[in-house]
């Protein structure tokens, strides 16, 4: 199948992400730190999975979004069936559910690739025997790692390899910050999309074909982003909008929210310094599945 190569009697496995050769007993790829369990599971399936990259700036909510998405799929939301391949695939959703039920946000994703959560799922939309199964790999990447890779390409080779192999991508953008007039969300998104554009190196006037869902997170802070998402992006993320219109063939815009009400515990921490810890008071899931549903219909 191309993943295994016998060499001098020592069987080896080719990493699913960067295709580097690794010995059979390694847990993570020696080159890019992607889990080798992905290869073992894909060998079992007999086919290579499709990769969906979930991208976004630090603190935009990638972990919470992906955790809820996977948990909803596991519970057959919107007639989807989803089966985790390997116990490691459940870690992310379990972590997110445990944290949010305790009214805490999950810990910040570590920058080291070997500490990222990788989810490998089989999913399909219920609809009889003819409905297609998708083998999907969706890693939870650290926003700071993405930023570092954009600033200095090849800092994180696994990100470059991941994006090059992705059948689709979601770019999460902080709608709350954008609505308040902050320019960081627009600039990060612009850089991320420019990076993706440069990866595919299409001919002049030819657009990038990979489908990309632009997902406005924390949209509960700005309800108008639900009412007319395209208009919101055009008004508050104009640089992103212009680039998408110029260079990307298949882009759609979505608004989502997972927190129904956000509060803060205020006061002094153990060192006597003032702080405000965000507390998700309760969940209210809106628009979590729609970007995923759209994306796999375009893949």
């Amino acid at each position: 199948m191309g993943w295994m190569q016998a060499d001098s009697g020592d069987p080896q496995l080719r990493c699913l992400i960067c295709e580097a050769l690794n010995t059979m007993d390694v847990v993570v790829c020696a080159e890019c730190s992607a889990p080798m369990a992905l290869v073992h599971d894909s060998v079992t399936q007999g086919r290579a999975p499709q990769i969906i990259s979930v991208l976004g700036d630090s603190n935009v909510g990638k972990t919470v979004y992906l955790g809820f998405l996977l948990d909803m799929l596991s519970q057959r939301a919107n007639e989807f069936e989803a089966i985790p391949k390997g116990a490691y695939s459940v870690d992310l959703q379990q972590n997110v559910v445990a944290s949010m039920t305790q009214r805490q946000f999950p810990a910040k994703t570590a920058m080291e690739p070997d500490r990222w959560n990788w989810a490998y799922y089989q999913a399909r939309k219920s609809g009889g025997r003819r409905s297609k199964w998708y083998d999907l790999v969706m890693p939870d990447l650290a926003g700071e790692s993405l930023a570092a890779e954009i600033a200095n390409p090849a800092t994180y080779r696994v990100i470059r390899s991941l994006l090059t192999k992705s059948a689709g991508a979601m770019l999460l953008v902080d709608a709350a910050l954008a609505a308040n007039g902050a320019t960081r969300p627009d600039f990060f998104a612009l850089k991320m999309m420019s990076y993706i554009d440069s990866l595919f190196q299409t001919k002049r006037d030819a657009k990038v074909q990979t489908p990309i869902a632009i997902v406005l997170c924390k949209a509960d802070h700005c309800p108008e982003s639900f009412d007319d998402t395209r208009r919101f992006v055009q008004g508050s993320l104009n640089r992103l909008w212009n680039l998408c219109e110029s260079r990307f063939q298949t882009v759609e815009y979505f608004a989502c929210s997972s927190v129904g009400s956000l509060a803060y515990a205020t006061g002094a921490d153990d060192d006597g310094l003032d702080f405000a810890r965000p507390i998700p008071l309760h969940t209210s899931l809106q628009g979590i599945l729609e970007p995923f549903e759209w994306l796999i219909s375009r893949m």
Partner: peptide
Amino acid sequence: RPVVGDMLLKAIRGGAFDTY
């Protein structure tokens, strides 16, 4: 430590159709 919002928080109860 007191829990506060950007403005006065009123208590709501019971859950809704999208309570996960």
